[in-house]
Design a binder for these strands. Structure first.
Lengths: 329, 329
DNA sequence: CTGAAAGCGCTAACAT
DNA sequence: ATGTTAGCGCTTTCAG
């Protein structure tokens, strides 16, 4: 491996001069700079940013810790982060945290001296970010927020998302509307649920049907059976993927969507809009969310004392073919 | 930030002892180890792996360089890599290379001293991997191979994929079959195309319809017009996403799938199987490909002189509803 | 303008 | 069993 020492030897100058020349410091003559750069180029020199980090105490690296639950929107956000991070000269180190304790993954990131962390917390819980606040490591939350405390956050307004979905269903005549969520205190789930409840209340609809499946397909099936007994006419789902599952299960029971039950998903996954019976869904700008999270963390690193900023996008209801007005006889 | 020096001071021992104790070296007494570990814990010590890297010349980091072209299969592979890498104690640093020169991204990875690189080359060209071979940095190619040279590679057998798709269409009566690819010397594109051509030749079908759109929606439309003029009855597409596009365009022209034209995609994206008119497609095990790529790069790092290994999965034809036999009157 | 020296936090070889 | 020393590759004072 060629180092500045090697270059220094060839160029007949000191290590310090090489370092300064390569970094375009002002106190090196143009001639020397040119000469040294040429030699570096010829020798195929690639700087060792590890050594640089050790001195500068900055790694120009952002850690991304998030769960991947098979939702294709994830990649859009990652791409958004990647693209804007690269503009700032930062690299991205990723780990998918699954459903376990995120603390270990966060510690790993800290050990690797990332300058900041973008985190999608699994638990709506201060504990998740405790180390980060203790160690004063800049971080921003993405997509999922935490109720207690006040943190930098980029995501969409899921409360509003829950509202517009419910509102629409009521407006087209539905009264027995269910919400299919996850359970277990997930921020977005809570928010959508709140929006759902509040909207029903506004219209004076007492009866709520709140189902939780905790990512368990079997429980989802049971949930469906339960609401079918109750003769509900519409379901709002926490995600598009869940919505698809619900539709399939309903089809298996011979229940037609949207004729008998209307379904609204959440995410607006591209590919789901294409086929027949395109999904009615709530849309959020995933790429943009990732992008803004990256911009915010870089800002935060440059200026750690900035007070928490929230960038919240309004989701949009995309009405397609899985919802239908109810004939109120 | 608390360092081993701080711990040493509190514990009343030397830095070396702390280092050894924390790393469970055998020449430290159990008592001291226990004491030091306790202090480290209490002080909230997190090791600085940057410093460690500088000494050990290993970062336990793998670089992943790949294009993201909106194909949701990408995330599956990333997840596969992530999961098995974590088992080995490696972290993953990702960058999406778009259509530009991948060399810069690779250099960035080298500068960051990754122990190895998993690369999906954009160009079927030795130049892409030149630095890596020069600098003797372990790498494995994933999904896309390079014709010249012989490299470690994990992916599926796209030649075979092209064959089974074509073979199936011929068996159900099609004779005028088109292949819709990308062009511009992409390995997988070439392979599928080869499989397509060879199979047609085997059946003595002279006429080939090879279209290239280079990811350009407009050119895709023109391609479709062209093959419609030729009255082809089936199209094999380079990807599921492209297949969807083709189907939509065909629908716009009032051409019915599969009644008038059969379509085969490539990728077997989950969500596309769910709706009515599920896509006939060629399936590849993306998660597994990522996983094996990770295992292979770690192997390669431990033993750089291993000769190139190829792990090639046989894709599978998934027959669904976008293909139909032809009535040969 | 250029160079010598110190040091980032850690490990490893060699003493003790 | 523990400590001393040197050094990884780089940047950064401070002198010259």
């Amino acid at each position: 491996m060629v180092t500045i020492k090697d270059i220094a030897k060839i160029a007949g100058v000191s290590k310090a001069t090489v370092s300064k020349a390569l970094n375009n410091k002002s106190d090196i003559s143009k001639k020397t700079k040119k000469k040294i750069k040429k030699i570096a180029e010829e020798m195929g020199y690639i700087p060792n940013s590890i050594a640089k980090c050790l001195v500068e105490k900055k790694t120009y690296t952002i850690g991304l810790v998030l769960p991947y639950l098979g939702n294709p929107t994830t990649i859009e956000r990652i791409k958004g982060i990647n693209d804007s991070l690269f503009n700032y000269g930062f690299a991205l180190i990723i780990c998918f945290s699954e459903k376990q304790n995120q603390q270990n993954y966060i510690k790993e990131m800290i050990s690797r001296k990332v300058d900041g962390i973008i985190l999608t917390p699994i638990m709506n819980n201060l504990k998740e970010v405790e180390i980060l606040t203790n160690k004063k490591i800049p971080f921003v939350l993405m997509s999922e927020n935490i109720d207690e405390g006040s943190f930098d956050f980029v995501g969409d307004d899921d409360f509003y998302g829950g509202k517009i979905a419910t509102d629409y269903l009521i407006k087209i005549g539905h009264k027995k509307i269910a919400y299919f969520g996850i359970g277990g205190n997930i921020y977005s789930d809570n928010q959508i649920k709140k929006g759902y409840i509040e909207t029903l209340n506004e219209y004076g609809i007492e009866k709520k049907y709140i189902m939780e499946n905790n990512f368990d397909k079997q429980r989802l099936k049971e949930n469906i059976k339960e609401v079918m007994k109750e003769k509900i006419t519409a379901i709002i789902c926490w995600s598009d993927i869940m919505a698809i599952d619900v539709i399939n299960n309903l089809n298996d029971y011979g229940v037609k969507v949207p004729e008998e039950i209307s379904i609204i998903g959440y995410d607006n996954i591209d590919f789901l809009s294409i086929f027949h019976i395109p999904l009615t869904t709530v849309s959020q700008p995933n790429y943009e969310i990732g992008k803004q999270a990256a911009i915010l963390i870089v800002e935060k690193i440059k200026n750690p004392d900035l007070k928490p900023k929230k960038i919240i996008f309004k989701p949009e209801l995309i009405i397609r073919k899985t919802t239908k007005e109810v004939n109120n006889v």
